[in-house]
Each structure stands twice: as structure tokens, then as C-alpha cells.
């Protein structure tokens, strides 16, 4: 999957939830990705360079995947 596109999507979710305050926005962003993203999208996001993400999106990813998983989700 196109990493730039995944980053854009994650940042966009975070931006739209930001008004709720950081803690709530991080939790909601993480929940949104869990609920609506397909495994290879999640895997691509988690394995990508997190520095490129906005702070809220980055914190949400940290929460979902604290360390880089060796196996990126189930194989197709």
C-alpha cells in the first residue's frame, strides 16, 4: 500500500478528532483505525516511518503497535 496515502489518511482522522483534546483524540484515532482499516493497511501504517505522522496520529499508532511487529498482520 502507498505509505504516503496511509499517512495522509491517519493524519486526517487525527486532525478531525483533535478538537476533543489530545488524550481523547489519540484514543479515538486508534479506535477508528482498529474498526475501519483492513489488516494490510494497518500493517503498512505500523511498519512505516512514524516520524512522518502528526503527533496525535503518531501517538495512536504507538498505542496500537508499541513496537514494530516482525510479522505485519496475517498473511493474505
Amino acid at each position: 500500500m502507498d505509505i504516503a496515502q496511509l499517512h495522509y489518511m491517519a493524519n486526517q482522522i487525527a486532525r478531525n478528532l483533535a478538537a476533543n483534546g489530545d488524550e481523547s483524540a489519540i484514543a479515538a484515532t486508534a479506535q477508528h483505525i482498529t474498526d475501519f482499516w483492513e489488516p494490510r493497511m494497518k500493517a503498512g501504517l505500523f511498519a512505516s516511518d512514524r516520524a512522518a505522522l502528526d503527533p496525535i496520529a503518531r501517538a495512536a499508532v504507538e498505542r496500537l503497535a508499541p513496537s514494530l511487529p516482525p510479522d505485519q498482520g496475517r498473511q493474505c
Binding site: 500500500m1 474498526d35 475501519f36 482499516w37 483492513e38 489488516p39 493497511m41 498482520g73 496475517r74
Partner: peptide, 9 residues
């Protein structure tokens, strides 16, 4: 149990 891809995805 995991969500699937949406059309653009």
C-alpha cells in the same frame, strides 16, 4: 474478524 478493504483501498 478483521474489516476488509473499501473501494478506494
Amino acid at each position: 474478524p478483521e474489516p476488509g478493504l473499501r473501494i478506494p483501498n
